[in-house]
Amino acid sequence: MSDIDLTTRAIEPPRLPRLEHQTFEIRALKSGLLTWLTWIAAGLAAIPLLSVIYMLIFKGGSRLFSSSIGEVLTGLPPAGFEMGGGIGPALVGTLVMVGIGALISIPIGILAAIYLGVLEPSSRISTNARFLAKVLTGFPSILAGVFVYAVIVIHFGYSAMAGGIALAVLMLPTVLLAAEEAMSQVPQRMKDAAYGMGCTRTQVILKVVLPTGLTGILTGVMLAIAGAAGESAPLLFTALFSNYYISELNEPTASLSILIYNFSGMPFQNQIELAWTASLALVLIVLMFNILARILGRSKY
């Protein structure tokens, strides 16, 4: 008959696998070590950021978050041994010049992005323009100031307008590249759907491509604004400084960043304190635009 023995097992059943954590195995030790290393590196990277914010709040907060906040935000900068005073003209000047920069760079940036992202994505002009825009994002900001100085300031003098134009030069590539990216992300089948409904090319762009890419475009715009608000170098050559509120766009104009630069080097305690206050105010403005970018960046659909 059959000589297969069914009573003894020919093969040992496998030992039960060990599924618990093996804390002292080499693999586990390595993994733990690396995890710790990344934690430490992250902590080190956060130190400068946190200490700057701490210093700003510590040194600038005393004037900003106190009963004199009204005077600080609206008052004129003090001269010499004067006490009190504020950063009013610089605050308004920064907002006005960033506003001018936005008014110039946003429409041009978005229109150019429509050309690059939707109309002619792969033409020679587009490829070159895209490359130049990328180069411009890494452009030292002081050169934007020098450029506007040579083109405008030499002929018309220092002014808020020149400062705004210098900021626009810096904002343009950021707006352009973000808007192009956002619009080229709009899927072709969505555009096909619009053409299939009987949309003209203009309608496809206005009703489908722009609204669909809007959140991405707004994020780019807000980041450009936040970046421009903190710039000082381009304003040195273009807007200069002023101790009074801006009344016309063709006069020298104060800005927070230049005020910080001027006052922090002065031998007067009051001015140094104001420089800290202005720094804190500037950081808060930049932060506000960044948060706005995040909120607007959340897609509705």
């Binding site: 899927p187 089948r189 969505m190 759907a193 619009a194 299939g196 409904m197 609204p211 669909t212 659909y301």
Partner: peptide, 12 residues
Amino acid sequence: GMVFQQPNPFSM
């Protein structure tokens, strides 16, 4: 009018 192979609603 046209209906496509892949559903393509607008992001609205």
